[in-house]
């Protein structure tokens, strides 16, 4: 019965599912005028891309890489340090330390590459997610636009 109709969500819808399932998550999506391959190559170079995509990171240093799992040491603008566990697959990236959850998704679209970002507080701060969501969404939108500009200039 393998010929019955079935469907695949794609990376962006998967990130939407996670955003709807993680309490307090902020989510934003845009279309970037760049090929998926070059966009995802940029994202996958996380030591460079993370400080550009998420304004809370000053530096990001990948310290271990096994298959689609990474570990990274990040430093924030206020000097806070975090050890991140990351799942990095083609088109989808999820990361977390004990205070923060981040997500990135991309897939080829009709007029460009659909690109989506997720951010949510984790742990004791998770209750701040809902009240801070409008602010987080504005920051994500700004990050996505910055990426678009970076990749097309």
């Amino acid at each position: 019965m393998t010929n019955l109709p079935s469907t695949e969500l794609g990376a962006v819808r998967r990130l939407q599912v996670l955003a709807a399932s993680i309490p307090g998550a902020a989510y934003d999506e845009t279309v970037v005028q760049a090929p998926f391959e070059s966009l995802w190559a940029f994202v996958s170079d996380m030591d460079t891309s993370m400080p550009r995509l998420f304004p809370n990171f000053r530096t990001w240093r990948t310290v271990a890489h096994h298959g689609d799992h990474l570990q990274a040491a990040a430093v924030g603008y206020l000097g806070q340090r975090g050890v991140f566990d990351v799942t990095l697959k083609p088109g989808l990236c999820i990361m977390q330390d004990r205070r923060f959850i981040g997500g990135i998704a991309a897939q080829p679209g009709v007029t460009g590459t659909r690109f989506a970002l997720l951010a949510a507080p984790r742990g004791p701060a998770r209750h701040l997610g809902a009240p801070l969501r409008p602010l987080a969404q504005r920051l994500l939108r700004r990050s996505a636009r910055r990426l678009g500009t970076h990749l097309t200039t």
Binding site: L18, V86, I101
Partner: peptide, 11 residues
Amino acid sequence: GGDALALEALL
């Protein structure tokens, strides 16, 4: 318990 990587693996 709020582990987003486990959530993604379940998805």
